[in-house]
């Protein structure tokens, strides 16, 4: 399973790449594997506000729906439009072409609460039992 070392992670299996005041977020390789073939992604509209830990959208397989929680609070500054027609990008490239949205942070201090790659790897290993 792929857990890039340069990202931060949530307990609900989202990742975020922090670049200054902006973060790019998506769901982890573990999450996409658990869901199976993803058929639809519902992301918040550009410009809307999201709150850390609160649901901001969902991803769907044929027979399940999983909520996506915001890894950080802020404003949605971009949404990956390719996912509308190609939700399979989430399966094929969850940390690259399968990114879901960008958030302009309201409070970068909040990010210290997220897990690093090592902590997330341990968390996934533990929850697999």
């Amino acid at each position: 399973m792929n857990i890039p070392s340069d990202l931060k992670y949530t307990k609900s299996h989202e990742w975020i790449r922090v670049e200054g005041n902006v973060g790019t977020a998506g769901i982890t390789d573990f999450a996409q594997q658990e869901l199976g073939d993803i058929v639809f992604v519902e992301a918040p509209a550009q410009g809307s506000a999201v709150a850390a830990g609160a649901p901001m959208g969902s991803v769907e397989s044929v027979k399940a729906v999983s909520e996506i929680n915001a890894p950080a609070s802020g404003t949605v500054s971009a949404v990956n439009a390719d996912l509308t027609d190609h939700p399979e990008l989430l399966n094929a490239d969850p940390y690259g072409k399968g990114w879901i949205l960008k958030i302009t942070f309201a409070n970068t201090g909040e990010l210290s609460g997220l897990m690093d790659a090592a902590a997330y790897a341990a968390y996934v290993a533990e929850s697999a039992h």
Binding site: F40, E60, S61, V62, K63, A64, V65
Partner: peptide
């Protein structure tokens, strides 16, 4: 599009 339906999304 069955994820709209009660057997999957229940009260939602």
């Amino acid at each position: 599009l069955t994820t709209r339906e009660q057997h999957i999304r229940r009260e939602k």
